[in-house]
Design a protein around this nucleic acid. Structure first.
Lengths: 223, 223
DNA sequence: CTGGATCCATGATGATACTG
DNA sequence: CAGTATCATCATGGATCCAG
């Protein structure tokens, strides 16, 4: 019996949704894109965030995403590290990640479970979208988070929120600076606990930050 | 050697994107959602559209999507057919499909290949998004397509386009009625051929339809 | 005919260990 | 740091069959 198995990686349809999924529909692929949306990362940076992925699978996914013109690898001679970043085509996937994350926030938002891998970057992404979901407040603002020693910038331009992993481009660039550990931020969001959190800035932006972040626990659904 | 393999179906992360992908990230899952977005379908309706899927995989996916509260099955006593439709949670996935399809249109739009499965519904979804992408024209309009004997409604409400599979709710509801086969519509879009196409309606809406549909061939990218 | 179920082959993924 | 190697397991596809 000759079983000529069709390639599992393709659908061979004209449909553009199917062809998009041929490029990013594999297990882990969109999570790699998610983590590169906040900026270039090294192999081990990605391993940290993609809890449970094996190095074999990660290197395979990175090569497939390179072949699909979604990721490029910066390999400078004389430097050990390889920095992976999104191509313009890959960066165009941001609405896909946003839509998935938005759906997840609406239908699966819940407290973190004990021992569940929870990276600061993902908690922050969820929190920013939950703010967007829970309130009508879209006033421009710039929040600087320093979580577990890494800097993130969350900003609203009046229409959309964005999240990047980088230090503020200039002193006093941010309206509020929040310093904490990932766990302390989770406790702030889900239990209104200020333990281990430092919030600095002008009184009004700080008040607004506290008010917006305070609404997030109420978003908790059945999930 | 006892290899305790982690469940391949889950990521076990807090991240909402990962948890969304646990529910819809399997092969074929989002394509099932795509086809239910235009309205309820039977098992064989889905088989027709999901070219290459095996009945085993389709029934497995449908049960998983039922368990995930994304799809419900209408099984009326005394009726042979089972009608699958989206739950409200499943319908909320429309922005995810739109984002994927939009990315596909921008980066993989090309002529259909000979023999490539091409369903009217998917060509129409692609065309509507390509119109949205290629022009600034968002004026409200209602187009009625009858393709291979099935009715579809494409409409703009002034902001967004939507596509459903149904006959017009009333006579004269649509501004333009287009009757064709899938192949003839493809020839109209990609080769400006009116062969086998019938377009009726008031002169101005018809002119606008022709103008918008005529821009689509120029969207063709490198893919 | 619709709506599946069954069996097996294959390939994708994971666990673990190891290397330049 | 950035992977590779080996082996085990599971998900998916192909082909076939079946009940209402």
């Amino acid at each position: 019996m000759t079983c000529v198995t069709r390639n599992v990686r393709t659908y061979d349809h004209f449909c553009l949704t199917a062809r998009a999924l041929e490029r990013v529909g594999d297990r882990w692929s969109l999570l790699v894109v998610r983590d590169l949306l906040t900026g270039a990362k090294r192999f081990t940076d990605l391993m940290d965030r993609l809890g449970g992925i094996t190095p074999k699978t990660l290197s395979q996914r990175l090569r497939e995403l390179e072949d699909a013109d979604i990721v490029t690898a910066d390999r400078e001679p004389g430097r050990r590290e390889v920095w992976y970043r999104l191509t313009p085509t890959g960066a165009d996937l941001e609405p896909v990640i946003d839509a998935l994350n938005w759906w997840g926030v609406r239908h699966s938002w819940r407290l973190p479970r004990p021992g569940e891998p929870l990276h600061a970057e993902h908690l922050l992404r969820a929190a920013v979208q939950a703010v967007d979901l829970a309130t009508d407040d879209r006033e421009p603002v710039r929040w600087h988070f320093r979580l577990d020693g890494t800097d993130y910038l969350a900003e609203s331009d009046g229409h959309r929120w964005s999240l990047t992993a980088q230090a503020p481009p200039a002193p006093a660039w941010a309206d509020v600076t929040i310093t904490a550990t990932t766990d302390a931020l989770a406790a702030r969001i889900f239990a209104q606990s200020d333990l281990g959190i430092d919030i600095t800035g002008e009184p009004e932006p700080v008040r607004r930050f506290r008010q917006l972040i305070g609404t997030l626990a109420t978003v908790v659904g059945p999930g």
